[in-house]
Amino acid sequence: MASLPPIDLPSAATGAGAFDTPAPSEGSALFEYLLRLGDDSLILGQRLSEWCGHAPSVEVDLSLANIALDLVGQATHFLNLAGEAEGKGRDDDALAFRRDVLDFRNCWLVEQPNGDFAQTMARQLLFSTWQKLLFRSLVGSSEPTIAAVAEKAVKEVTYHQELASEWVIRLGDGTEESRRRMQEGLDWMWRFVPELFEMDDLAAFMAEKGIGVDLPAIRDEYDRQIRDVIAEATLDLPPDQRPILGGRRGHHSEHLGHLLAAMQFLPRTYPDAVW
């Protein structure tokens, strides 16, 4: 398939404000980079939590809640570090609950609705495989706090990837109905993969500093692992589609605002509420 140019921001929107890539200075770049890491985990953790009480079986219910918990734990660490890098006294709660949609820096993949169980598993496979390789690289980050979170989390993310792989294989190599749904889930989520490997100025700057990861360097391994699972699941590798970019600069699908409304309602309505 001929590759189309990526969908990126309309030029009018890149002038100023929320869609801006900040001019890389060490402090602000670190803040932005940590938001990317933390927001990916936070938003997917929130999404997976929506399954709680609705999953196909109690074991799956527990699994998804556990994965969500791991992700929210990662977000807590990354957002606290982001708050420290920013130096304005914001902690994880302030960054999670008192930012609006344009200030979120997560990728599009994690904010996508759960769809059916197969679609959720497709998203999880594509994300957890990436996150495991990302964290494995971040263990060598020159920023010791990031390295420490990654070192701890990589063991947990390995479980996430295993669970998703097993389900993709079971559903893909299952009944006619499960195979159809698994293929559709994968086909839908596939378009959000290129963004995971996007190297914009900020990502390049952080990689140069040894803090962040050179994402194209882990692409081959990612493709290999994903292809292996898809092959074992007897599914078809989806055709490459027009990549959708922009989440790292605050440009999101309409789904994120709705997710935030549910997540942020209480702390915004009752600021500093305690129990």
Partner: peptide, 11 residues
């Protein structure tokens, strides 16, 4: 199940 009643346990 790989995931149990708490993050540290499997069933």
């Amino acid at each position: 199940s790989r995931f149990g009643s708490t993050p540290c346990k499997s069933l």
